[in-house]
Design a protein around this nucleic acid. Sequence first.
DNA 1: AATGAATGAGAGTTCATTCAT
DNA 2: TATGAATGAACTCTCATTCAT
Lengths: 175, 175, 175, 175
Amino acid sequence: MAAAAQVVHQQGAERTTIADIARAADVQVGNVYYYFKTKDELVAAALIEHTRQLETLTGELDRLPDPRERLKSLVRGWVGQRDLAARYGCPTGTLATELDKRAEGGLDKEAGKVIRLLLDWVASQFRELDLPDPDGLALTLVGAYQGMSLLTNALRDPQIMVKEGDRLIAWLDTL
Amino acid sequence: MAAAAQVVHQQGAERTTIADIARAADVQVGNVYYYFKTKDELVAAALIEHTRQLETLTGELDRLPDPRERLKSLVRGWVGQRDLAARYGCPTGTLATELDKRAEGGLDKEAGKVIRLLLDWVASQFRELDLPDPDGLALTLVGAYQGMSLLTNALRDPQIMVKEGDRLIAWLDTL
Amino acid sequence: MAAAAQVVHQQGAERTTIADIARAADVQVGNVYYYFKTKDELVAAALIEHTRQLETLTGELDRLPDPRERLKSLVRGWVGQRDLAARYGCPTGTLATELDKRAEGGLDKEAGKVIRLLLDWVASQFRELDLPDPDGLALTLVGAYQGMSLLTNALRDPQIMVKEGDRLIAWLDTL
Amino acid sequence: MAAAAQVVHQQGAERTTIADIARAADVQVGNVYYYFKTKDELVAAALIEHTRQLETLTGELDRLPDPRERLKSLVRGWVGQRDLAARYGCPTGTLATELDKRAEGGLDKEAGKVIRLLLDWVASQFRELDLPDPDGLALTLVGAYQGMSLLTNALRDPQIMVKEGDRLIAWLDTL
DNA sequence: AATGAATGAGAGTTCATTCAT
DNA sequence: TATGAATGAACTCTCATTCAT
C-alpha cells in the first residue's frame, strides 16, 4: 500500500502500471493480485494510505493546545513539502483530479472523502476558535492549499508555496 | 482542435483515445494523423485551444474601463462555469495536473505556460490598480480559483464556487 | 471466420487462443480485434460459419427429388466425415457442449439454434414423407448422429460411424 | 474427488479452477496439491468418481433378474436425471468431449474408457438376451443416450429425454 | 485529404503450480 | 497435513501509430 501510494503520487494513477508498483514493493507482479483483485483496488489502497497519513498528521497537531497554532503548523507542514509539491503536486489533490475521470470503479467519490476529512478537521479548529462560518473558512484555507500546490506544480516553483504560506499564516493571525 | 479540447477536458488526457477525439470531430481515426503526428501534438493542440479561449476572454475583459471590474468580472465568469467545474474541473488546471506526469513529450511545461499567461494578465490588472506586490496578489487570486475548482470538482458541489466566488469579489473590493 | 471455425473445432473454444486463430488466418493478433471486439464474438463467428456450411449442405440435398433420399444422403455425408469426427467430434455438437459452460457471453443459446436448424430441416423431410411425428423422428435421427459422433470421438474409432450409419440408413428405409 | 466431479461437471474442466474445487471441498488451495500433483490428476479423479458411480449403478441393476428389465431401468434412470442433463449434459459425455481437446496429459483416452465400461455392461445384457450383435445394439443404445443428452442440453429442454426415453424403452421391448 | 485496415508493443488479469512454515 | 503466500507464464484486450490506396 505504501509503495502504491508513493508510485501513484509520482507517476499518476493512469501512468502507473501494476508492474511499477510491484517493482517498488519488491514483489512479483502476479503476487500483487493476491492482495488486490484489480488495479482500482490498488488505487483505493493508495487513497487509504493517504487518509492514514492525514490522520497521523492531524493527530499530532491535535496535541498542540491552541487551534490557531495547529492551523499555522499545518500550513508550515505544507510549505515544508514544497519540493515534493513542485515535483508531483498534492498527493490527494492530484489523485482526486485523476480519479474524477475514472468513473467506472466508483473511485471518483473516494478521493473527495479524503479531502472532506481534511476540511472537517480544519473547520473544527476554526469552530474551536469561535470564528463565524468555520466551514467557509476551512474551504478558503484548504482551497488555498490546493491552489498553491497546483500552481507550484504547474510552474515547478517551490517558492510559490513559501510566499503563499506566509500569507496564509498572516491571514490566520488576523482572524 | 475544439473536439480535442472538449473531450480531453471531460475524459482526461490519459483516458482519451485518438478514436474518441476522431469520433467527436466526426473524422476517421487515420485521418487525425494527417494533422497531428502524435497524441502529444493533439494534447498540445487542446492546450492551444484553451489559450485561445483565455485570450478571447481577457480581450473582452480588457474592454472594461476599470481593472478592478475586470477582475471581478473574471471571477464572475468562473462562477458561471461552476457546473462544468463540478463535473470536470478547470480545463487548464486538470490538464496541468495530468501533463505533469507525462514528462516524455515535454508537454509538462506547456500547461504551466497557459497558467502563467493568466497570472500575468491578472498581475497587470493589479499593477494598473497601483497595488503593492501585484504578482503575489495574482498568485493568490489564481490560486484561489484553482483551489476552489479542485474542491468543487472533488466534492461535486458547484455551491463551493458560488461561496468562494463571493468571497473573492468582496476581497477584491477591500484592496 | 473460416480460420476461427476450423481451429475452434480442432482445439475447442476454451483452448483456442486468439493467437491461434490469428496464426491460422495469417493476420496479426491485434488485427483480429479490428473485426471482432471480444473472443466471444469470434466464437460466435465460428458458429455462424457452421450455420453457413449447414445451409450449403441442406441446400444441395434439397436438389434431390426424394426426401428419404435426402436424409439417407445426409447420413452418408456424416459417415463420410468419420475420420474428422473420430479426431474432433461433430463441430456443432462439441461446440454446443463447450458453450453451455460459457454462460457469460450469452453464447450458450446460439449453439442450440444451429442444432435446431438441422432438426427443423430433418423434420421437414419426414413431414414431406407424410410420416407421423416428424419432430420426434428428427430428434431420433439427429440424436443418433450426435451420439455416434461422440462415441466415435471418445473411442477414436471411425468404424462406429460406419456401423451406425448403415443402421440409420436401413432404419430410414423401414419408415 | 466428489467435489471435483461435481464442479467439473457443472463448469466444465477448462473453466474449473483449482480454487473452485478447493472451495467446493472446503479445503485450502495449496492443500489440494498434497493429494493431486496436477490439475490433470484432479480431472482424472473426477473421472474415477464417475466410474465409481457407474459401477454402483450397474451393480444395483445387476440385482434385477431380467437383463431387459435392467436395460429399461437404466434408461429410466437416465430420464430421471433429465433436469441435470438439460442444465449440464451427461457428466461422462461432456467430459469426454472436453478431454478430447486436452491431449497433453493423456487424459483423452481415460474418458473413453468409462464409456467403454458402460458399453460393455450394456452389451453383456444384450448378450444374455441372446440377441444378435450385442455390441452393435450397445452402441445404438448408449449412442442414443449420449445424443439425447446433448440435444437436451443444447436446447435446454428436459422433455426431449422423456420422449426419447419412451422410444428407447419401447424399442427394447421389440427386441 | 480521406479511408480502413494493419501493426506491435504493452497493460491488466488469471491461474496452475511451488514453497516455506 | 494444512496454510497462505509467491511465482511466472500465458492470455485477452487496448491503443498509438503506420500504411496502402
